[in-house]
């Protein structure tokens, strides 16, 4: 029998390759499907010659930006989910657990209530998210040893506060503003346009996390264990907290609070064997991205011409998929 060491480098390579292929396929599917059916040749024509006819407008102005926005958003959320789970050392952590989405939602809902334009809604959401990030950090990290528990409790309590404010705003609003508020709260990509900034934040977030990947492996074993292995834990946590916060805030301003991606994508990959962060981090980016692209494609096609908020679809697909993988992982562990 050949020795099975080093374990899994080849397996991990296959996994990442498969995820990259999945990303490409999901983007192609997203561009290829929609309420207007385009044949393969029409599609190819439209992609190659953006000359302003109807099909090239559909492809270049609607489908491609939306698919890219979904990919960016899913990637950001999944990366942020990985970080939050390690930072809080809690498998239930997701990008929103520290109140970032709550803060963003309150900002956005206030803007909607005041009847602000879409651009201002995004700015207000970003301001709300950043305020929440600093508030939680200020409350939790005042002492030198900001433990994961303290951070988690502070974040959860602040989230609850935002939740109450959201309910006040919802109950006191008129019927037609409530509709757009609900779309914001559930996560919706129909108005999303990716910019260079979003891409830049995704790439720099990825680079920062990859540079800390081995330290993340140590940190997931505990603060003290990591420190004993020479990791500067206080500095690492600071880097992790603010990069996850920035990535989450960016994702929220693009699409509202799309749930489930940040929670389940990291777990799916861990259950598929990618526990080492050097694989888990890029893997999460690709799986999170393609997961949201596919969910959004379904969201805009299954009840076409009507559109569902993508956040509903992520849960609808994610729950059964996650349960199947969890069950399989459990069987492997016990056998």
């Amino acid at each position: 029998m050949t020795p099975m060491y080093p374990p899994g480098v080849k397996r991990h390579m296959y996994l990442i390759t498969a995820l990259i292929m999945l990303s490409v396929v999901s983007l192609l599917v997203a561009v290829g499907t929609g309420s207007v059916t385009l044949s393969m040749t029409e599609l190819w024509q439209a992609v190659r010659q953006p000359d302003g006819n109807a099909s090239s407008l559909i492809v270049w102005d609607i489908r491609i930006p939306r698919a890219l926005a979904a990919f960016l958003c899913g990637g950001l959320l999944a990366l942020s989910g990985v970080v939050m789970q390690v930072l809080l050392r809690n498998p239930l952590a997701d990008p929103y657990i520290l109140g970032i989405s709550g803060g963003a939602a309150v900002g956005a809902l206030i803007a909607i209530t005041l009847g602000a334009a879409a651009l201002w809604m995004t700015q207000a959401a970003l301001a709300g998210a950043m305020f929440s990030v600093l508030l939680v950090f200020g409350l939790a990290a005042r002492s030198r040893h900001w433990s994961s528990t303290r951070l988690l409790l502070t974040g959860v309590v602040v989230s609850a506060g935002w939740g109450a404010l959201i309910n006040i705003l919802l109950t006191t609003s008129t019927a037609n503003t409530v509709q757009s508020m609900l779309f914001w709260l559930m996560g919706d990509l129909s108005q999303s346009r990716p910019t260079l900034w979003h891409l830049l934040i995704l790439i720099s977030g990825l680079a920062i996390l990859l540079s800390q990947a081995r330290h993340l492996n140590a940190l997931s074993r505990g603060d003290l264990s990591a420190a004993a292995l020479g990791v500067n834990v206080a500095r690492l946590k600071l880097i992790l907290y603010f990069s996850a916060a920035l990535m989450t805030a960016t994702a929220v301003t693009v699409a509202g609070s799309v749930g489930f991606v940040g929670l389940v994508v990291p777990h799916m990959l861990r259950l598929l064997g990618a526990r080492d962060h050097r694989w888990l981090i890029p893997g999460s980016l690709f799986l999170g991205g393609s997961f949201l692209v596919l969910a959004d494609t379904l969201a805009r096609t299954i009840v076409a011409p009507q559109q569902l908020p993508v956040g509903v679809l992520t849960a609808l697909i994610g729950v059964p998929l996650f349960l199947v993988i969890l069950h399989r992982g459990y069987r492997q562990e016990t056998s």
Partner: peptide, 22 residues
């Protein structure tokens, strides 16, 4: 350490490999 929390999954090999981190 006397007691370590192990909340995140990892294989035996991965945990021992962390000893090489320094």
């Amino acid at each position: 350490f006397q007691h370590e929390a192990e909340p995140m999954p990892a294989t035996v090999y991965e945990v021992v490999m962390l000893g090489r981190l320094p």
